[in-house]
């Protein structure tokens, strides 16, 4: 990761109960911040720029962007 601009105070939230592991969002992300491991979607918060594309894409509405930095335990 290059030393980019300071991260905004946001988190991409994945609702694992709702996610159906379709992997569709992976190919839409401009920053390679999503990847599918088996049925587990991984969100790499450090790469995410909160562009909302995956949020728009998700066919079940499992993704959202909320205020606040990812806390531990990591939100997604």
């Amino acid at each position: 990761m290059s030393a980019g601009p300071k991260k905004p105070n946001k988190t991409l939230l994945l609702d694992r109960e709702t996610c159906i592991s379709c992997a569709g969002c992976v190919g839409t992300c401009p920053d390679l911040a999503l990847d599918m491991f088996g049925v587990d979607l991984q969100v790499f918060q450090d790469k995410c720029t909160y562009c909302t594309i995956c949020v728009r894409f998700c066919p079940v509405g499992a993704l959202s962007i909320v205020k606040g930095t990812p806390t531990s335990p990591i939100v997604a």
Binding site: A23, V26, G27, T28, P30, L32, D35, R56, F57
Partner: peptide, 18 residues
Amino acid sequence: GVEALSGRWVGLKTRQLP
């Protein structure tokens, strides 16, 4: 398939653009 990451690894613009 749609995830199409392999193309991106070699520098092709394969992202699914909304």
